[in-house]
Design a protein around this nucleic acid. Sequence first.
DNA 1: ATTAATGTTCAGAA
DNA 2: TTTCTGAACATTAA
Length: 282
Amino acid sequence: MPELPEVETMRRGALCFRGGRIVSVKKPRCPSRPIHMAPSLAAMRRRLVGRRVKDVERLGKRVVFVLDDDQRLIFEPRMTGQLLIVPPPDPRHVRLQLEFRGAARPCLSYSDRRGLGSIHLYRPSEFTRHFETRPLGPDALDIAPDALRNRLKTTRRAVKVALLDQRLVAGIGNLYACEILHEARIHPATPSCELTASACRRLHRAMLRILNDAIDCEGSTLSDATYVTAQNTPGQYQRHHRVYGRAGETCGRCGRGQIERIVIAQRGTFYCPRCQSRRKVP
DNA sequence: ATTAATGTTCAGAA
DNA sequence: TTTCTGAACATTAA
């Protein structure tokens, strides 16, 4: 489930196409159902072939190819999307393939087992309008402590739900929300607007620490191996998880609490009841 | 053999 | 306006 660290790792992998020129756009007919793609394959091919890749950026949990005419090709992997710069291990799930000339690698494959992901190609004005209509919050790696606090103050929902809201802050998903809140010693159900100033500071520090460590480890590859790097190798951050998927285990920090699993916003939520007590920590 | 669980985003309802 | 729920989907665990 690609969140910020996984998508950032994909982006870095895809940087090898910078400077290259797109020479073909193919959709293998093997996969079961088509994923959401706009415009159609034909139009996409017409507008992509011959274009050069100016840069590869990340926008929240999306990977953005910026082309020489400022069009933007955006991959949104959602749950099971993969961006591969090596031959895909199982061709059945490949949804789109781009061939390049003049790049460090010949081929980019977008593979997606569940097919919940999407691919969009925007002209500059379309891109601007799309993200004005549905604005993302500041990136989790860029947001200043005060800005984070001000944004968290605007909602009464549980702080974990607030962290998952991409309009408040962009890039955090279920797994890292759990890890960040544990690191910050904040109960995930705490109303966001009731966080103290110091809790917000801890949250900001924890967010940077966890996300940067996870990027250094190339993200988290769980047992279902749904996420892999662009080189089709597993990430390593799962070894550092302190709460996610660890219900029943003893908390690694306090050495006494038992990790619990509860459900918040219909998602599995892991935390240590001892480290992350509901009482406000000054 | 059903049924639940997995988690991201969006549409639509409350 | 804000918050919540369900659907999209594939695969696995119970």
